[in-house]
């Protein structure tokens, strides 16, 4: 029997009366790629914020690897192994590309509170950081300030940084949004490669990406789960089709 890595029950978030996420029950199986899709404003990013505790749920429970994490702080959720990316690319623009990856690697030192030590002591992470940069095709940009990278490369750097933590559960919020076709293809290959040994929950608008990658899909509209299942079943669901065509005024 398959195990469940992440489970929510009745997960809800209300913003001053407006319910952005409404009693969502999710079950993510270990080792799968699970896509969360839905029209703009459906509540997908809010869901991610709830799962990673960047927002406190108004109601409901979150179980990660069998443990209740509903009351944890966001940094502690990340430390348990659920790491997210952001919809807007999130790199450290002031740091070099190599330092971006290293900042994630250096977390395994425990706290980095040693203000008396030279940062030369961080060079022992350089080899591993370079290997991760090579993985995402950024090896030649190691010394470039991250702010100067192209958009597609920033997203690749973000994934490399996330992978440095080697998290069992990866949450990707629109990893291909705003990318040109060759970049999209590169990210898809990357995601396919990095799925081994981990679970991925991703928000994605590009349906060809979703169909090619994901094992299961959850469709969200107006904060509610509209449908759930494998791509073939869900894509033929009349309710999903109407929601995507935008004719549903119920």
């Amino acid at each position: 029997m398959s195990t469940i890595i992440l489970e929510t029950s009745g997960l809800s978030k209300a913003f001053s009366g407006f319910t952005a996420v409404d009693r969502v029950d999710l079950r993510i199986e270990t080792g799968t790629i699970h896509a969360l899709i839905g029209p703009n404003g459906a509540g997908k990013t809010t869901c991610f914020n709830l799962l990673t505790k960047f927002l406190q749920p108004s109601a409901g429970r979150i179980l990660f690897q069998g443990e209740d994490i509903t009351r944890l702080k966001p940094a502690d959720v990340a430390r348990r192994g659920m790491v997210r990316s952001f919809q807007i690319s999130a790199v450290f623009g002031q740091l070099s590309t190599l330092e971006n990856v290293r900042i994630a690697l250096q977390r395994d030192r425990g706290g980095s509170f040693d203000f008396w030590r030279s940062s030369d002591s961080l060079t022992r992470y350089d080899d591993r950081a370079r290997a991760l940069l090579t993985d995402v095709g950024l090896e030649t940009f190691a010394d470039t300030p991250a702010a100067e990278l192209s958009y597609g490369r920033k997203r690749a750097l973000e994934i490399a940084t996330t992978l440095a933590l080697d998290p069992p559960l990866l949450l990707l919020d629109e990893p291909t949004a705003g990318m040109a076709e060759p970049d999209v293809a590169r990210i898809v290959t990357l995601i396919r490669r990095l799925r081994t040994g981990r679970t991925i929950l991703m928000v994605e608008h590009n349906l060809s990406v979703v169909s090619g990658l994901s094992d299961r899909i959850t469709v969200l509209t107006r904060g509610r789960v509209l449908a759930e299942g494998p791509y073939e079943t869900v894509s033929k669901d009349p309710a999903v089709i109407t929601a995507y065509l935008g004719t549903d005024h119920a």
Binding site: T52, F54, P74, A75, D76, A78, R79, V83, R84, S85, F86, A90, V91, F92, G93, Q94, L95, E99, R102, I103, A104, Q106, R107, R109, S112, F113, D114, F115, W116, R117, S118, S119, S121, L122, T161, T162, L165
Partner: peptide, 26 residues
């Protein structure tokens, strides 16, 4: 030394993008 320590690197990154640092578990 403070600015150029492992601690200083973390602080610089926090200044740069705090939510991202939190999401990395800091």
């Amino acid at each position: 030394r403070i600015v150029n320590s492992p601690f200083g690197q973390v602080v610089k990154a926090v200044r740069d993008n705090e939510p991202r640092m939190i999401s990395l578990g800091y």
